[in-house]
Amino acid sequence: MQPDMEIVHLLRAAAVELGLHSARFAQHNGMHPTDVRALIALMDARRAGAETTAGRLGAALGLNSAGTTALLDRLERAGHVRRVRGETDRRRVVVEVTDGAVDLGWAFFGPLIERSVELLRGYDDHQRAAIRDFLDGVRTAAAEGTHTPPTDTSQREPQHGNTR
């Protein structure tokens, strides 16, 4: 196997394991996987100091208006989010993740996050920058792929030497 493909396969395996870890969190807390993705998006926005409207959250998750409303109603009933007036524009309603949801997430994901940070400490600044650039590039490529309609691969000839 080519070294580059080995790294791609390891990344895919890590993505699968992270997805399974997230699914265990969702199941353990009576959530849908989309609920978890929404909470992650809201936590990322909170960390960045950005306000998130329902529309922006729905667009980020690929949900229509009705789906977004159902999601937010579910998360609000569970005490994970609240709808509040925007700081910059009081006419807007924004969605905030609650401290309780952050604490719940940290209790489950904290050990994995701490282990990841511990692993990164084994790399120098240059290596961490390369890792960051690679992961950001993969994230960007994956995000760009969400805007491309799926193609019918059933008629496509297999590519020799390229294991999927």
Rank of each mutant, 00 (worst) to 15 (best):
A78R: 05
G58F: 12
I113V: 09
A141N: 03
Q155E: 07
G100Q: 03
R82K: 02
S65M: 09
A59D: 05
E144R: 14
D136H: 13
E51M: 04
G161P: 01
R77H: 11
G58E: 00
P150K: 00
I131W: 05
T163Q: 07
R85M: 01
E51I: 04
A101D: 00
A23S: 13
R132L: 05
S22D: 07
G30H: 00
F134N: 00
G79M: 00
G86N: 03
D125S: 11
V102F: 12
Q2I: 12
D136V: 15
A14N: 10
R139N: 13
G55S: 04
P33E: 00
A101G: 02
H28I: 05
T53I: 13
E51D: 06
A26T: 07
T69L: 08
R91I: 07
D103L: 12
M43Q: 15
R121M: 03
R56C: 13
G122L: 00
N29Q: 02
E6V: 09
H147S: 11
T52Y: 13
V81F: 09
A48D: 00
H9S: 04
D125P: 10
V102D: 06
V95Q: 02
P149T: 05
A41M: 07
T52C: 11
F134K: 01
H21R: 03
R56S: 10
I7G: 00
A60V: 15
V84A: 02
A54H: 15
V94D: 01
T53K: 10
A54R: 10
G161W: 00
Y123F: 08
E157C: 14
R47F: 12
L39I: 13
L63I: 09
S154V: 03
D99L: 06
V102T: 10
L20R: 08
R156H: 07
R47Y: 10
P149S: 01
S65Q: 14
P33F: 01
E114Q: 06
I40K: 07
R132Q: 13
R74W: 11
L61V: 04
A78D: 02
R47V: 11
R121A: 06
L57S: 05
R156C: 09
G100F: 07
Q2E: 09
D103H: 14
E144M: 07
R56A: 15
L119S: 14
V16R: 12
L72F: 09
R121G: 04
D133G: 04
D35Y: 06
S65P: 15
A50H: 15
R77W: 10
E17N: 11
S116Q: 02
T53F: 13
H28D: 15
E157S: 14
T69S: 05
M5F: 06
R46T: 08
A13S: 11
T34D: 12
A45T: 08
V94F: 06
N162C: 12
Q159L: 06
H9E: 04
G145Y: 11
G122A: 03
G100P: 14
F25H: 02
G79A: 00
R12V: 10
G137A: 00
E114I: 08
E76M: 08
